[in-house]
Amino acid sequence: SPEVQIAILTEQINNLNEHLRVHKKDHHSRRGLLKMVGKRRRLLAYLRNKDVARYREIVEKLG
C-alpha cells in the first residue's frame, strides 16, 4: 500500500540524513536521497488525489 511505502521511504530518508551529517562529501548517497524524496513526494501526491483521509492520517503519523 502507498502508506507502507511512504513509511519505509521516510525511515530510509531519516537514516540517510544522519549518514550525510557525518559524511558531508558523500554525493553518491545524496543523489540517492534526492531520488527517495522525489519518490515519496509522488506517492504522497497519489494518495492525496485518491483518498484525502488516508493522506491526512499518514502525514499526521509521520510528521
Rank of each mutant, 00 (worst) to 15 (best):
H23F: 07
E18V: 07
R48M: 09
Y46H: 11
Q5N: 04
R21K: 13
R30L: 13
L33D: 00
K25Q: 11
Y46I: 13
N14E: 07
R41W: 11
T10N: 05
E11L: 11
N49P: 01
N49R: 12
I6Q: 01
V37S: 02
L43K: 01
P2I: 15
V59W: 06
Q12R: 13
L44C: 06
G38D: 14
Q12D: 03
E11Q: 12
R31I: 11
Y46C: 09
R41D: 12
G32F: 14
N17K: 15
G38N: 14
A45Y: 05
Q12N: 07
L33P: 00
H28V: 14
P2K: 05
S1P: 09
E11D: 07
R30Y: 13
L44W: 03
I13G: 01
H23P: 02
V37F: 06
G32W: 15
A45E: 13
K50D: 05
K39T: 10
R41H: 09
D26M: 03
A53F: 08
G38A: 14
T10S: 06
T10M: 06
R48D: 01
V22H: 12
V4H: 12
I8T: 08
A45L: 10
G38T: 12
R48S: 04
H27V: 08
N49A: 13
R56P: 03
V37D: 02
R41C: 15
Y55S: 01
D51F: 03
L34F: 10
R41L: 13
E18F: 06
R31M: 12
A7F: 15
V4S: 09
A45V: 10
M36T: 03
T10K: 01
R40K: 03
I8N: 06
A7E: 09
H19I: 07
E11I: 11
S29W: 05
Q5P: 02
E57Y: 05
D26F: 03
E60K: 11
E60M: 10
G32Q: 15
H27E: 10
N15Y: 13
N49S: 11
L9G: 00
H19V: 05
D51C: 05
R30H: 11
I6K: 00
L47I: 09
R54A: 13
K50C: 12
Q12M: 15
H27S: 06
E18T: 06
L43H: 01
K25C: 14
L43N: 00
V22E: 08
I13N: 00
D26G: 04
M36I: 08
V4T: 09
E11V: 10
L34K: 09
V37P: 00
N49M: 12
V59I: 14
V52I: 14
S29H: 11
E57G: 03
H28W: 08
I8R: 09
S1M: 07
P2Q: 05
R56V: 08
I58D: 00
E60R: 11
Y46K: 08
L62F: 06
V52W: 13
S29A: 15
K50H: 14
H19R: 06
R56L: 14
E18K: 10
Y46W: 12
H23G: 04
L9W: 03
T10I: 11
V22A: 10
H28K: 14
L43F: 03
Q5G: 03
S29C: 09
S1K: 08
S29L: 13
A53E: 14
Y55K: 00
L47N: 00
L20F: 05
